[in-house]
């Protein structure tokens, strides 16, 4: 645990020592806001909720999460510091979790800074604050799932660009797995059970449930499971490289 925190602290420091982190946050906030008001029709909807805000989060994360996660391992491999880290008395899993937490906290900070949105809707009407809070948590959880995937992909290469592109591609597959675009070609080819399984992997579906205020255990378990499996695979990838 102590090691996890030490790694998390170092990684968070690494995010914020470069101006990139601030650029990142600003762009995220600007995009989140613009999408809500222009594409989401926040005012036009005339409803005191943040649906117009949260509905774009999966798409924002699709690019932001791999961008945040891409340096986690690829950078260590490129500069050789991975040898320093892995020969310190840190378990591989501790390093994996520590790095993931840093990235997750970073997104948490960006997400928390969208609070004016909540204030706005609270000023204009009487929103269901419980649903909004839940949506925020759901959004953060979704980001975690994306980051776990991004971090794992980052461990496969020493090139951050490859890590980003590959990470975004894998995240895209998960995101789209419930959409007809993906399901239609499969229909008829595979048994309905498999089709349902693929559909159940859909980030959009699970996240949609949460932002509607429906806390289904399945959705929570699913997102946590993606994080857990992602980190496990990440650890295995690194362990396998020793052999």
């Amino acid at each position: 645990m102590r090691n996890v925190l030490a790694v998390t602290k170092r990684e968070l420091g690494a995010y914020f020592t470069t101006p990139l982190a601030y650029v990142f946050i600003v762009v995220f906030l600007a995009l989140a806001g613009a999408l809500t008001f222009y594409a989401g029709g926040f005012f036009e909807r005339g409803q005191a909720d943040l649906q117009a805000f949260f509905v774009f989060h999966p798409w924002l994360y699709l690019f932001f999460a791999p961008a945040i996660a891409m340096r986690l391992w690829a950078e260590e491999k490129r500069t050789g510091t991975i040898e320093l880290l892995m020969t310190l008395p840190v378990r591989t899993a501790e390093a994996v979790i520590g790095k993931f937490l840093a990235a997750w906290l970073f997104v948490g900070v960006a997400l928390a800074l969208t609070f004016p949105m909540w204030l706005t809707v609270g000023y204009l009407g009487e929103p269901d604050n419980g649903v909004i809070l839940l949506s925020y948590l759901g959004s953060w959880l979704l980001a975690g799932a994306f980051l776990a995937i991004g971090a794992t992909v980052s461990a496969l290469t020493r090139n951050q660009v490859i890590a980003f592109v590959l990470g975004a591609a894998v995240c895209f597959l998960f995101l789209m797995s419930g959409v007809d675009l993906v399901l239609a070609p499969l229909r008829g080819l595979v048994p309905p059970v498999v089709l349902e399984l693929v559909a159940s992997f859909s980030f959009l579906h699970h996240f949609g449930e949460i932002t509607k205020g429906v806390v289904s255990l399945a959705s929570l378990v699913f997102l946590f499971a993606v994080i857990g499996v992602g980190l496990l695979v990440n650890t295995l990838v690194l362990e396998l490289e020793k052999a």
Binding site: R2, N3, A6, V7, K9, R10, G13, A14, T17, T18, T79, G80, T81, I82, E83, L84, T87, L88, P89, V90
Partner: peptide, 30 residues
């Protein structure tokens, strides 16, 4: 690893950290 001190080839280091921060990080992990 607890009983070893290791200087890898080329002495790879976290370039964005200050010397002090880097040594502190190593101390924490140790």
């Amino acid at each position: 690893k607890r009983r070893l001190g290791y200087l890898p080839e080329g002495a790879p280091l976290y370039g964005d950290m200050t010397v002090e921060a880097l040594l502190r990080f190593v101390a924490e992990v140790r």
